[in-house]
Design a protein around this nucleic acid. Structure first.
Length: 422
RNA sequence: GUGGGCGUAGCUCAGCUGGUAGAGCACUCGGUUGUGGUCCGAGAUGUCGCGGGUUCGAGCCCCGUCGUUCACCCCA
């Protein structure tokens, strides 16, 4: 009787051993700079009240209008798997009154996010992000620090081939003035139906159109950067100055378009050119109105989200993933029932002393177990059989060159500590 | 949601103008008693994604379907 196999849901990316090791490494590298800068972990649910995203991220965005995993729970509530991280953090901060204490609130998170898109290279329906949010202080130095933390993460991965693009979306007055002129300009263009619809939803989108003729047409379009208020312009200048003194390279991209509605002021993206069509490895920006929109105080915040899956692809593309294969310190091969018991006891003791120990299971031939030991990458191997148990002495074999030495079983831990220089 | 490519052993793939499946790697066992990596020998594994159709005959042709992949849209 054979059952049908069940497959993973469409569009999910899984990390199985041994590649999972690389994924784990990438995530650690991206998180480390945030921890070093005093950000603390915030662990949130992967599902939220649907209203959090429709209101926070914006009803008109593609993310909300056509990419959310939304369902009704058993109590008839509309629930959505989180498509991004910032809205949830703001909800939690407001709910727990974290913004009533020392500001800025500085938190980092790591986890999976969900968007019901058609999968392609670097784009999955479940994807992993590492992010930070700094809430409650509006200071261009903080903007620069947030960008620097993201940049440090990518540098930790050994990436060299990415670029940082920044712009400012200004305050609401700046944007309103620009939008009016941009609409007038767009009205002069001859657009196909789909494009006209996109322009209606968000005129800035046309700056992002990949068709050469559209890029050409948009060259003379009014640019938001030229509409910044005096304050916004000065703020943006400061951010650039701070980035420069930190030695962080960036380019200004006045045509940058972000997919989430809440961004204001400083906005940035990290782009890697070797990933195919989905080249963004991270992005973020300041959001002035989000907290208030979600029922909290009128406090500004800034944060980013970095794509762990894409960062791994980038690290692979640049061959910067370290090749430290998974290894153990000791591999124990027991021969016989008595030896099995002893192996379990020895392994347990060694592990509690920080010595990574594996055991050969199953009653196969010694040669097969030695092969398994070899594959495990263990530095040392011992074989325990009746004679070892009777004598209380085992041969400790160094796998790199096959050299063995006799050790009393009770002195095994001490000897391993010496040879492994722990 | 739209379009293109692909779908043969665990993995990577081969299979000529249609004649009832192969390689390499991996895996298991062995090369006389309890010691890996190299070498040698042996072995197991496929409803050729699935369902129809054309044909004396289909892995190969046609249609559908599912999956996958790349791109558009959008984004991490």
């Amino acid at each position: 009787m054979k059952f049908e196999k069940i497959q993973a849901p469409k569009g999910v990316r899984e990390y199985l051993p041994p590649e999972s090791r690389s994924f784990e490494w990438v995530r650690e590298q991206l998180i480390a700079p945030a921890k070093d800068a005093g950000y603390q972990l915030i662990e949130l649910p992967v599902f939220e009240d649907t209203n959090l995203f429709t209101r926070g991220v914006g009803e008109s965005t593609d993310v909300v209008s056509k990419e959310m995993y939304t369902f009704e729970d058993r109590g008839g509530r509309s629930i959505t798997l989180r498509p991004e991280g910032t809205a949830g953090v703001m909800r939690a901060v407001i709910e727990a009154n974290l913004d009533r204490g020392q500001l800025p609130v500085k938190v980092w998170y790591s986890g999976q996010f969900f968007r019901a898109e058609r999968p392609q290279a670097g784009r999955y329906r479940q994807f992993y992000q590492v992010g930070i949010e700094a809430i409650g202080i509006d200071d261009p130095a903080l903007d620069a620090e947030v960008i620097a933390i993201a940049d440090r993460g990518f540098k930790n991965l050994g990436l060299r081939n990415y670029r940082l693009e920044i712009t400012s979306l200004g305050d609401s007055q700046s944007r309103a003035a620009h939008r009016a002129d941009l609409m007038k300009f767009i009205a002069t263009l001859d657009l196909d139906e789909a494009t006209a619809l996109r322009a209606e939803i968000n005129p800035l989108r046309l700056f992002d159109d990949k068709r050469p003729q559209m890029q050409e047409a948009m060259k003379s379009a009014p640019r938001l950067l030229d509409y910044l208020s005096t304050d916004s312009a000065a703020n943006f200048e400061s951010v650039q100055k701070y980035l420069t003194v930190m030695g962080i390279a960036f380019t200004i991209n006045p045509r940058m378009v972000r997919g989430l509605d809440y961004y204001t002021g400083t906005t940035f993206e990290f782009i890697h050119p070797d990933l195919g069509a989905q080249s963004g490895i991270g992005g973020g920006g300041r959001y002035d109105g989000l907290m208030q929109t979600l029922g909290g105080q009128a406090l500004s915040g800034i944060g980013f989200g970095l794509g762990v899956d894409r960062a791994l692809l980038a690290a692979i593309a640049e061959s910067s993933v370290p090749l430290d294969a998974f290894t153990s310190d000791l591999f124990i091969i027991p021969l016989g029932e008595r030896a099995k018991q002893e192996a379990l006891v020895i392994a347990s003791n060694l592990r509690s002393n920080g010595i990574r120990t594996e055991i050969a299971f199953g009653d196969r031939a010694l040669k097969g177990s030695m092969k398994a030991a070899d594959k495990s990458g263990s530095a040392y191997v011992i074989v325990i059989g009746d004679s070892e148990l009777d004598l209380g002495v085992i041969e400790l074999k160094r796998m790199s060159d096959g050299v063995t030495s006799s050790v009393k079983i009770e002195q095994l831990q001490q000897r391993l500590g010496e040879v492994l220089s722990l």
